[in-house]
Amino acid sequence: MRLAYRFAIASDKITADGVEVTGFPDLARRYRVSSVPKTVVGETAEFVGAQPESALLQHVLDVATPSSLS
């Protein structure tokens, strides 16, 4: 979660929510949170568990510039 916060601090384009999900079952269902920590990037990418900075960056860039996936 701290890495997401640091991404938000680094870029005005990024916002980061830490969500303790037990109080928000609607979000748990919507984002299919069965294991934590689960990170959702935009509305299209997600991963479970801690990942290195480079991996989160790649997810962010993929979501921000979807054409780069082709």
């Binding site: 916002t15 980061a16 929510d17 999900v21």
Partner: peptide
């Protein structure tokens, strides 16, 4: 980055 990206980390 030119478009906003929202990160949500569930715990």
């Amino acid at each position: 980055l030119t478009t906003p990206v929202h990160l949500q980390v569930f715990s």
